[in-house]
Design a binder for these strands. Structure first.
Length: 853
RNA sequence: GCGAGCGUGGCGAAACUGGUAGACGCAAGGGACUUAAAAUCCCUCGACCUCGGUCAUGCGGGUUCGAUCCCCGCCGCUCGCACCA
């Protein structure tokens, strides 16, 4: 009996699949139901790492299961190939971004193929290919013609390291999501996509996404940040500032507290504040003071509220009081109208401000039971209650008071109920070379002119230089100079390129027919979309996943697509993490150079190359900087890809991080060997022991049920545990005979196939099945065959297990009760403790509980 | 601060709708085979003790015949958002 040799088996089976073109998805409708499995496509950084491997193996398990269950499965792969790292490589090494990217793709494609994934490589594309981004330009212009693309001067997030603009979604804790540099504010003329037009629709759509994690839906909802309130104007007392002749417009979600207003606040960069600053150096100095202080967590918590009394005054719309207008550092110009009315009694920030500047604090909502003497200090009252000190609102509950206040203000013509959003339009201009050129031409005479359809794709020039900072397209000698398509005069191309998140916001639709002349082949998209199961990291919860939902809506409204929700099911997988090791002088050491020793319950680490003792550090995401990386290639060389595939899924639930350990993958490898030993030792003519045969059939069907449920429910770790247990059962039934064992092994081969496809094929062939296990149907569960004749019922007394009872399945509860009461151990326990049975609970085929006293 | 999630052996974790807590794997210990080691196979493995029990799913309460699971209040960790009016 030979050991299983993955080194020969895995290439052999991969060659069989390739020869059969097994994963090429048919373009025509076969009458079978469709299933579209997609993993977030990779950025071609250079190498496939363990995180990629786990992600793609998960998708592969789903793809292989669905295929066996009779679906036509679309499972494509491509490359999110534009982006900064290619330009960094160009700057550091003088290599062209395109050459660097395509060479990485070639490497990673080969690495990916070693994983034995059931991918349809015939549909592969890279977003940096003009045949892809040209189509993107086509739909971009369609959205432009529909008014969803526009240009405006705006304050943007500027990443000083990457020298480019970032979308709000790409700024994390005040830093660039890629570079980690502190983001600056800059004023630039930028292209925007009107995602805010879809704010409501994007929120409504979340409700239907039942197969999305609640967490992601909630994150998107919070990101869009819809709030309902009142936009109203406060009329000036005295001369009106030129910037706001009608009055000061504010937004509030608490119109019920209007009678508690004690000051007005405007943002330091509100137009009125700006005008005042220009006229008065003292105001300018104050405004500059406000800009200090970062946006990190600590900065905000420590930042003191500061204000400047402008001397401007407005009149309260209800009681006619005079209210002074302050510039305040805690008011955001980008949210609402950039101005508020301050109600210190019921807003913590307003309270801190009012207490600092000695402004009145007027409570207007009091909790149940509080009297007219209810006062607020130190902590604003934000709980429920009824209105008081509020004239016509007195006695109303908060919601009713809000409605009444809005009705009155509307009646006075000083405002109306309004819904506002935190979501901003998506700034897509990037001052970079390695991206999709924005297909726009600027003409002195005609203004902004779209590139004509017959000039698409607007291709990137090849001859560019990276020896100086800035945008190579901008300084290219000829590229941007073109004739205006409209008047024929001298004109220049837009030199900004699109945010790479635009590239990934529609690629899933392109996979339906990647060679189509139009951006999206309507018939193919109708067949395949939406993606039935999408798998990727949770880090894209409000980036890629929100953009893709928006673009799908926009393209659908433009008639280019037919699915508004692109991803019917979403799964966010955890990372691969690994222990870290450090020398005493603080240098990281890679796991391959570490020996782990357990002595007297203590684990310690020793460096293999030098023998020195190492410190065992935290378990962290695999990263080059911490050197805690294990390359998929090395695992494949040492254990075979099936063992690696099995281990990344076996040790933790897929949504959680999995800790890579050598011991763990060795265990998986042992399992592979043991499974092979069972296949290899199979004798179809072995005589059968009837009882064992019957028992094995039962166990086989139980395993089919458990594994199928586990895989379908994304509980891969539990499914694999059942497979381990089933193998032990098969081994134990060594006298079950050729027929029963043949069936059990056939089921085992098919059940492990999604996880260890190469081993499964080898076993399938050894069991004398013809053809590929890929084409074999998923084993069918028969509940009748899985049912035990007898069940073991625990007997509890007062909720604690005291004995057990073996009864026929479906036994009459009265009989079970009688048998439980007659049980010797039960009788002994009762008499020893002087108890008698007061009540008997029988849960059929599960448990018996005796209530005794 | 707001929102969400999670706390189970030495470790990763199971337990599908409230019904025998700890499946499966790792580590550890013992044994078989071997001149020896590796590999492989078998056994043990939550804690405590009088070996029959007692206590155990972060802590304290509650509901229930019965709670890892449901409810209330704490504590801890992780993630997301954050001066959003």
């Amino acid at each position: 009996m030979a050991r299983y040799d993955p080194k020969s088996a895995e290439p052999r089976q991969q060659a069989r699949w390739a020869e059969a073109r097994a994963f090429v998805t048919p373009d025509h409708d076969t009458g079978r139901p469709k299933y579209y499995v997609l993993e977030m496509f990779p950025y071609p950084s250079g190498n496939i790492h363990m995180g990629h491997a786990r992600n793609y193996v998960m998708g592969d398990v789903v793809a292989r299961l669905k295929r066996a269950q009779g679906f036509d499965v679309l499972h494509p792969m491509g490359w999110d190939a534009f982006g900064m790292p290619a330009e960094n490589a160009a700057m550091e090494r003088g290599v062209h971004p395109g050459d660097w990217t395509w060479s990485n793709i070639a490497t990673m494609r080969d690495q990916l193929k070693l994983l034995g994934l059931s991918l349809d490589w015939s549909r592969e594309f890279a977003t940096c290919d003009p045949t892809y981004y040209g189509k993107q330009q086509a739909w971009f212009l369609e959205l432009f013609s529909r008014g969803l693309v526009y240009r405006k001067d705006g304050v943007v997030n500027w990443d000083p390291v990457d020298n480019t603009v970032l979308a709000n979604e790409q700024v994390i804790d005040g830093r660039g999501w890629r570079s980690g540099a502190v983001v600056e504010k800059r004023k630039l003329n930028q292209w925007f996509l009107r995602i805010t037009d879809y704010a409501d629709d994007l929120i409504e759509g979340l409700g239907e996404l039942e197969r999305w994690p609640d967490k992601v839906r909630l994150m998107q909802e919070n990101w869009i940040g819809r709030s309902k309130g009142l936009k109203m104007t406060w009329r000036w007392i005295g001369d009106a500032p030129a910037e706001a002749p009608e009055g000061l417009e504010v937004y509030t979600t608490r119109p019920d507290t209007l009678f508690g207003a004690s000051f007005m606040g405007i943002a330091p960069d509100h137009p009125i504040a700006k005008a005042l600053a220009e006229a008065n150096p003292e105001v300018a100095a104050f405004v500059a003071e406000c800009r200090k202080g970062g946006s990190s967590q600590a900065d905000i918590e420590q930042a003191e509220k500061i204000g400047w009394n402008t001397g401007l005054r407005v009149r309260h719309p209800f009681d006619g009081r005079e209210v002074s207008v302050w510039i305040a550092n805690f008011i955001l110009s980008e949210y609402g109208t950039g101005a508020i009315f301050g109600c210190p009694a019921h807003d913590q920030r307003d309270l801190e401000f009012a207490e600092k500047y000695g402004l009145p604090v007027i409570p207007v909502v009091r909790p149940e039971g509080a009297g007219d003497d209810f006062v607020v200090s130190g902590e604003a009252y934000v709980g429920p209650g009824r209105l008081f000190h509020s004239d016509f609102l007195d006695g109303l509950e908060i919601e009713a008071a809000k409605a009444e206040a809005i009705r009155r203000i509307e009646g006075m013509g000083q405002g109306q109920g309004a819904t506002i959003y935190r979501l901003r339009d998506w700034g897509v201009s990037r001052q970079r070379y390695w991206g999709c050129p924005i297909p726009i031409i600027h003409c002195q005479a005609c203004g902004v002119v779209p590139a004509p359809a017959d000039q698409l794709p607007v291709e990137l020039p090849q001859d560019v230089t990276f020896d100086v900072p800035g945008n190579p397209l901008e300084r290219h000698p000829t590229w941007k100079h073109v004739a205006c398509p409209s008047c024929g005069g001298e004109a220049t191309r837009e030199t900004d390129t699109l945010d790479t998140f635009v590239d990934s916001s529609w690629y899933f639709a392109r996979f339906a027919d990647p060679k189509a002349a139009e951006p999206i082949n309507a018939a193919a998209a109708a067949r395949w979309l939406p993606v039935d199961q999408y798998i990727g990291g949770v880090e894209h919860a409000v980036l890629h996943l929100l953009y893709a939902r928006f673009i799908s809506r926009a393209l659908s409204d433009a008639g280019l697509m037919n699915v508004r929700e692109p991803f019917a099911g979403l799964f966010t997988q955890g990372m691969v993490v690994h222990e870290t090791y450090k020398t005493t002088d603080g240098k990281w050491v890679e796991p391959a150079d570490v020996d782990l020793i357990t002595e007297g319950g203590q684990r310690r680490a020793v460096r293999l190359s030098t023998g020195e003792a190492l410190t065992i550090g935290d378990i962290e995401k695999m990263s080059k900087s911490k050197k805690n990386v294990v390359a998929p290639q090395d695992i494949i060389d040492a254990y075979g890809v099936d063992a690696g595939r099995l281990f990344v899924l076996s040790d933790s639930p897929p949504e959680r991080d999995v800790q890579w350990t050598t011991g763990g993958v060795e265990g998986a490898s042992r399992f592979v060997q043991r499974v092979w030993a069972e296949f290899d030792g199979f004798d179809a003519d072995a005589p059968a022991d009837a009882a064992q045969a019957e028992s094995l059939v039962r166990e086989t069907h139980k395993a089919i049920k458990a594994v199928t449920d586990g895989v379908q429910g994304f509980r891969f770790n539990a499914a694999i545990a059942k497979l381990y247990a089933f193998l032990a059962v098969v081994k134990a039934h060594d006298r079950a005979g050729g027929a029963a064992r043949g069936e059990a092994l056939s089921a085992l081969a098919r059940l492990i196939a999604p996880f260890t496809p190469h081993l499964a094929e080898e076993g399938w062939a050894r069991l004398d099945h013809t053809g590929l296990i890929l084409d074999a149907p998923w084993p069918e569960y028969d509940p009748k065959l899985a049912a035990d004749d007898a069940v073991t019922l625990p007997i509890q007394i007062g909720g604690k297990r005291r004995s057990e009872l073996v009864m026929p399945r479906g036994a009459d509860p009265a009989e079970v009760e009688a048998a439980a009461l007659a049980d010797q151990a039960v009788q002994a326990f009762l008499s020893a403790n002087g108890l008698s049975v007061k009540k008997v609970i029988v849960v059929p085929d599960r448990i018996v509980n005796l209530v005794a006293a």
